[in-house]
Amino acid sequence: MKLLFSTERLPIKSRFERWLEMLEEQRLPLEQEQLDAAPFEAKLEIATLGPLTMTRVSEGPLRSEATPSAIRRLGDEGCISVGFTLAGMTKVQQRDRATAQRQGDLVVIEHQPTVMTTSPGNQSLYLKMPRERLESALGPARHYAALTIGSELATATLAMSFFVELSRMHYQLDAATAVRMGSIGVDLIVASIAERMARDVPLPLSDSVLVQRAKAHVEANLGDPTLDPPQVAAALGVSLHRLRDLFRTRGQHVSDWIWQRRLEVAADRLADPACAHITVGTLAGGCGFSSRTHFSRRFKDRFGLAPGEFRHAVGLAGH
């Protein structure tokens, strides 16, 4: 990640003032105050993965407030942030919810009035993404903003580990691959939030969360040719009848959703220059199709072109 700021070589007396100046330069809508008299220490690093921005922050104990006027000045309503606490503790207060995150926990932070406090030695990794990316899968962010998604959830641990490693290795990836890896990581975050919400949300929303957990399971297992509605139901711990009813009330069928996502992912890979060396047969297998013939028939029915023709149409050589 690119280092934007460090207090390491700055005079102690000017460190906090320089830090505030840097926040203003980066258009971060925060009013901050130190919570102890110790020499201030902080570091900020950043990386961009297409529509996603990763920021790693190491800082001393601070109280940070995002005020309504500062948020309006920022004008970033279309974005939302996810924070991973890597060390220390973070407390977040937003709307009517106040929670604490310890090492390994994650939290969603809306661009709304917010108060945050950090403990000594705090280190966090923040991911800023298009708001629609989460809300299209999980519904309005107000239902899960400032909710602690704890490290006791395997999905949360996996999501944090994934982004920590991505923050270390993204510079070794080409731009297209880095964007694709970021998207995979966001899917892990969606699965984490869905699992956490399923524990204590009202029944109508719980149904929506079950559907999103089902979709997250499908995304994670598209390459498995045995993936089918009974397997998805078993993974969620619900009956096949209930799973079908949940999808039917949303105008969908589980099996149709599985094939739709397989075809959409296949089309994305056929149009991806990074996948141009992969044969159509291999690509079909990676998306869960048992044979190239089956894949070609379904693909042409969906997109009007055979896979090889589609690849030519987007300017990539056919395989």
Results as ranks from 00 to 15, higher is better:
78 G>W: 00
181 M>R: 13
19 W>F: 15
44 L>C: 01
289 F>C: 04
198 A>E: 12
131 R>A: 05
269 R>D: 13
123 Q>I: 08
115 V>S: 08
295 F>Y: 04
99 T>F: 01
83 G>D: 01
165 E>A: 10
27 R>N: 13
142 R>E: 14
235 A>F: 05
230 P>A: 03
104 G>P: 00
299 F>T: 04
208 S>Q: 14
165 E>H: 07
144 Y>R: 03
57 V>M: 06
292 R>G: 03
122 N>I: 01
228 D>F: 00
128 K>W: 04
255 S>G: 05
186 V>P: 00
104 G>R: 00
38 A>M: 10
224 D>F: 03
107 V>H: 02
226 T>D: 13
296 S>D: 12
199 R>D: 07
81 S>A: 15
13 K>N: 13
71 I>T: 04
138 L>D: 14
245 D>P: 02
71 I>S: 03
241 H>C: 06
138 L>F: 12
216 A>S: 15
187 D>C: 09
121 G>M: 08
250 R>V: 05
135 E>K: 05
259 W>Q: 13
180 R>Q: 15
84 F>W: 02
22 M>R: 10
111 H>Q: 05
95 R>I: 07
142 R>Y: 14
164 V>I: 15
46 I>R: 14
6 S>C: 10
262 R>T: 11
98 A>M: 08
13 K>Y: 09
88 G>W: 02
206 S>D: 08
309 E>A: 13
105 D>E: 07
214 A>I: 06
96 D>T: 11
84 F>L: 08
174 D>M: 09
98 A>W: 03
18 R>F: 03
250 R>Q: 15
56 R>E: 15
33 E>G: 04
238 V>K: 09
23 L>M: 14
1 M>G: 14
265 V>K: 10
126 Y>R: 07
197 M>V: 01
205 L>T: 02
119 S>D: 09
33 E>N: 06
36 D>S: 14
39 P>M: 11
157 T>G: 15
233 A>R: 06
239 S>Q: 03
66 A>K: 10
266 A>W: 08
70 A>T: 03
122 N>K: 00
55 T>P: 00
171 Y>F: 04
151 S>F: 07
147 L>G: 03
309 E>Y: 05
173 L>W: 06
176 A>Y: 03
174 D>Y: 04
57 V>A: 01
212 Q>C: 12
83 G>A: 12
50 G>Q: 09
13 K>M: 13
191 A>P: 00
68 P>K: 10
137 A>T: 00
230 P>K: 01
123 Q>A: 10
293 T>Y: 04
112 Q>K: 14
105 D>R: 12
75 G>M: 05
229 P>G: 00
125 L>F: 04
177 T>N: 09
75 G>L: 07
138 L>M: 12
270 L>T: 08
19 W>Y: 15
64 S>G: 13
122 N>P: 02
138 L>G: 10
216 A>G: 07
97 R>K: 12
145 A>W: 02
46 I>L: 09
202 P>I: 12
148 T>N: 09
317 A>R: 15
79 C>E: 05
167 S>D: 02
259 W>D: 15
